[in-house]
Amino acid sequence: MRIIGLLIVIAFGSLLRYGVFFFPEWGDPASPPSLHVSPHYIEEAIAETAVPNLVTAVLADYRGYDTMFETTVIFAAGLACFMLLRVLQRQVPECRLYRHIPTGITLRIEKGGKLPTESGSFERIDSNWVPHDLIIKSTSRFITPFLQIFALYVIAHGHHSPGGGFQGGVILGAAVIMYAISYDLRRSIQRIGEQATAVLGSAGVLIYAGTGALCMVLGAAFLDYGALAGLLGVDPVMARSHGMLIVEIGVGIAVSAVMVWIYYNLSSAGRHDEGL
């Protein structure tokens, strides 16, 4: 296999190498990609959409349709992980560990046993995670809100600087993932449940598709945000900008939710019990 693989790879590589001979030079300002379609974006985008970040303009408006499906791909991946991994038959683990929060005493409860008092002073802990790592917890608790605010900033400021729904969404999701890593998965799931991630995931994509459909209902083409001008009370160019913002928010919601969803499933192998 190794030899065959090597041969295939070498053949493939030399074929491409041969093709590279005939490429335009790297970074050549006169190469076709720089001359044919893109000048329109560069020169007209700000006039047509009022968004200085060309990537955002192209991403969310000119080729907004691609981006809708990009979000859908992420959503589909979340769905796929859920379908593939999630174990819904509730099996009671062999033993569970509980920690008494005030004292730090750990109780081990065998299968079928019950906690002496169902009070809030006990918390369940992972079977192979005994210590209570204060440093990491405090740091992440400290960072999390900043990270979330930063994520929102990235989503909202995507028009003027790099960033946008996707990046912001991932950071937002990463904040939750960090919480789940530094505390434990169960607590994170208590905060943001599986159901919430799934529904938010579809809601995010739905915001995107719904915005497009709204444009369609208003008589323009699908995703033609210019049609929203009447609703938003601005001129069509600004309406495009605002439309993009709405769409980016949808993307952000979807991506963050789905990232968390995938993480939940992947880190606990679908049991949503104990995780990384």
């Binding site: 740091t139 992440s140 960072i143 900043f146």
Partner: peptide, 16 residues
Amino acid sequence: VLVFITSPTATHAIVD
């Protein structure tokens, strides 16, 4: 500032 906070934590985590 962020690095100032996270870097020691990361180091701590690795040591741990």
